[in-house]
């Protein structure tokens, strides 16, 4: 009765409309509504408002999630960054030593990685993990068609690519493939040594055209040297000792430049 009714507040109507009441509380509001048509209209209004808001914003959650919001990718990238920083001191010594001979990679030694560089390494390592263990189809185009491989990937990346010859480092070309990267196509060349160890060279077109120094990253036993040349960004990935990988990267850099 009226003593019951007095207990129903506007907040109860909201809670009722939001389905937040159960049992006796719900029954009390229903009894109240039966005698107060104006309150029924109010509850309907609340519900309609919520439905309109869900119709307005709901579709956003059904959109495909952009690559950059992939939680696993962010997690991997955060690990790459950590490892790079913790090894900076060691890498710096190494690069300075190499720098006296080569000159070019001593530059901007302490500059932090840009997000684009971290993404490059992440993609290159992912691609390496997926394809280097592949027995039947490690590549799309085999080394036997090297000229075709070179012209095809040059065309797709809109850059003049040279497939580096790394035989002086004991690596023979297996072949290559086209891959989807975050911002367009990527090329991957695969090499192996006489023990079957595989090394991959991952290349994407560079936008800014700013050359960077040689950088080094490591994650889960995989090592990578990466750099940006005039028109391309590259990452050489393998599970070889770092100094060996650096020799190979230097060789690849010279031939690609």
């Amino acid at each position: 009765m009226s003593s019951e009714e007095r207990k129903i507040t506007e907040h109860d109507l909201h809670a009722y409309a939001d389905g937040a009441l159960d049992g006796p509380a719900r029954a009390a509001v229903e009894a109240y509504l039966a005698e107060h048509p104006a309150a029924v209209g109010e509850v309907e209004d609340f519900k309609r408002q919520s439905e309109t808001l869900r119709a307005l914003y709901g579709p956003v959650a059904a959109e495909p999630v952009p690559h950059r919001l992939n939680a696993y990718r962010i997690e991997r990238e955060s690990r790459i960054r950590t490892v790079t920083w913790s090894r900076m001191a060691a890498a710096a010594v190494l690069l300075l030593a190499a720098g006296t001979a080569g000159g070019w990679y001593g530059r901007a030694l302490y500059a932090p990685e840009t997000p684009a560089q971290v993404a490059l390494v992440d993609e290159a390592m992912e691609a390496h993990r997926v394809y280097s263990g592949e027995v039947v189809h490690p590549v799309e185009v085999w080394a036997g068609q090297k000229d075709h491989l070179q012209s095809w990937l040059s065309k797709r990346l809109a850059r003049t690519l040279t497939v580096p010859d790394l035989r002086s480092d004991g690596l023979t070309l297996v072949g290559g493939r086209l891959l989807p990267a975050a911002n367009g196509p990527a090329a991957q060349f695969m090499y192996e040594d006489d023990t079957g160890h595989r090394v991959t060279l991952y290349i994407i077109p560079a936008k800014e055209g700013r050359e960077t120094s040689f950088r080094y990253a490591s994650l889960d036993r995989l090592e990578a040297f990466f750099w940006t040349d005039e028109a391309i960004s590259c990452a050489l990935v393998g599970d070889l000792p770092r100094d060996r990988l650096q020799e190979i990267a230097t060789q690849a850099y010279k031939q690609l430049g």
Binding site: L56, A62, A71, Y72
Partner: peptide, 18 residues
Amino acid sequence: IMDEIEECVPALRRYARA
């Protein structure tokens, strides 16, 4: 926890957009 974080992403995008 990574799986659970990943599952939240669509709702987080919806809330942020709104």
